[in-house]
């Protein structure tokens, strides 16, 4: 069985799915990723699906599960690079990928995680109430 490699780049785990995954491979990725999040202490996971030419309900469910698991492990997951044809098909299939954050590409995904962590760190210091988005500190 093939395994999908997980790369650590700075504070982020990057998973770039390059193969047509069998269901087993998808389940293995789910497990590997949970372990790597704990082992590395990363707070961000980016799953790049640019190379996937389809996402069916099984892979869709895997993505949702990964997002939920990483949330429990205090990491934010962003799925990036979904192709237009895949997105159109998912809508037709009725799969909404609830709870998954998405971005157009890896770069935007990293920005999203950075913004999140910045907010989070801000909360952690706790000296100010969360500022209104429009008000500058």
């Amino acid at each position: 069985m093939e395994r999908v490699p997980i790369l650590k780049i700075g504070e982020i785990l990057l998973v770039s799915i390059q193969v047509d995954m069998s269901d087993q491979t998808a389940v293995a990725l789910q497990e590997d990723l949970a372990e790597r999040i704990v082992a590395t202490g990363c707070h961000g996971v980016i799953i790049d699906i640019t190379a996937l030419d389809i996402v069916d309900s099984f892979v869709g469910r895997m993505l949702s599960t990964i997002a939920s698991i990483s949330r429990v492990l205090d990491a934010e997951t962003v799925v990036v690079g979904m192709r237009p044809a895949v997105a159109i098909t998912l809508v037709e299939l009725g799969l909404s990928l609830n709870g998954i954050r998405t971005a157009l590409n890896v770069e935007r995904g990293m920005e999203l995680i950075a913004i999140d962590r910045a907010d989070y760190d801000h909360d952690e210091t706790g000296d100010d109430p969360i500022p209104e988005p429009t008000a500058s500190p």
Partner: peptide
Amino acid sequence: LKTVVAARLMGA
């Protein structure tokens, strides 16, 4: 509507 939802899935 479907396009809007699809765009959202893609992160836009």
